[in-house]
Design a protein around this nucleic acid. Sequence first.
DNA 1: ACAGTTTGGAACCAATTGGTCAATAACTGC
DNA 2: GCAGTTATTGACCAATTGGTTCCAAACTGT
Lengths: 185, 185
Amino acid sequence: MARPREFDVDKAVEAAMHVFWLNGYQGTSLPDLLDGIGIARGSLYKAFGSKKELFLRALELYDQRYVEPGVVHLKDKSEPSGETRIKNVFAGAISVVRDGDRRGCLLCNTAAGSTAGDAEISKVINGLLDRLTDAFEEALIASATFKDKSTRRSKAHNLTLTYVGLRVMAKTGIDADSLEIGAMT
Amino acid sequence: MARPREFDVDKAVEAAMHVFWLNGYQGTSLPDLLDGIGIARGSLYKAFGSKKELFLRALELYDQRYVEPGVVHLKDKSEPSGETRIKNVFAGAISVVRDGDRRGCLLCNTAAGSTAGDAEISKVINGLLDRLTDAFEEALIASATFKDKSTRRSKAHNLTLTYVGLRVMAKTGIDADSLEIGAMT
DNA sequence: ACAGTTTGGAACCAATTGGTCAATAACTGC
DNA sequence: GCAGTTATTGACCAATTGGTTCCAAACTGT
């Protein structure tokens, strides 16, 4: 019916995600995105509307690519024990640091950034953090230590907090070994 | 000998610190600083050289105003027990949230931000985080549980990580009660 | 092959970015 | 009160910001 788009929208969102991940929302300029994606200004605005909308799309992709798998794993009762599943999540976060990835986590970076001034973005961020906490809580459900519901919820919050701390610390010059104990129980 | 400065440099740095704290380094524009401090463009550049130098000054002030007191308290052996001193530090961080302060911690915000791309700034940030870890370590020195030096160092890293996580989470919509357990041992 | 539709690209936009500078003002030592 | 020094101010700067617009190009259905 009309001229077909020459670039893959999904690939574009993915490229944008990496640019945002590396530079942060505020730290990313239009040319940064254009270079990273490999499209022209007009194409970006036609396809995504604005920088912010594209960021929201990138955040969405980050969720399904990195957050959701973790959430699924934490909730997966067919896996070993809840404790092991939790350990796996932390170990995963540490292993990327071992591989030299110092970008931290797009979710955590955004939460810590002053992007929070934007209501729409913080709503998404808060939602993701809540989902993570819920998943931790579910992983704790079989644990005798956290049999009490409110204690369990507290521990879940504690785990989210520790996870965020770990991923922020990963951005600093700290060595991976010193993060290892982030999962300490 | 010459015309005296009309504004108080220390007050200016303090005002700048609050502006940076609220908006982040990248999110703070020259007009933001000028309005916050109440001086003209030229005066700022004459007194501080550049936005970055002013930020470094603000970071320095943040240290002596908020970080150093915590460090001193953690190391103060005349105080109750090391465990209590640690609890105090976390309780302090939570109490500011209870008072409605959602700005988090300038140090932690900067660590999480992409400001880390600047070598000079990240050096300062890493230094501050190291000092905090050292202080936690010293607070643990009397503890029987962490008698082993390397275990103690690990726990100290864990505490810094948790502290950062707590202060980042404080910026999100989370309620103060859910942070309470950040100090869980 | 032509009408209709949407893309890509670049020129263009006003606003804002961090930073400079020259003129004026305010002070001190003599 | 004059010479010397430094601070204040606001105009000015080039570069960059996010965003728009217009036109040629590319496709599809008929």
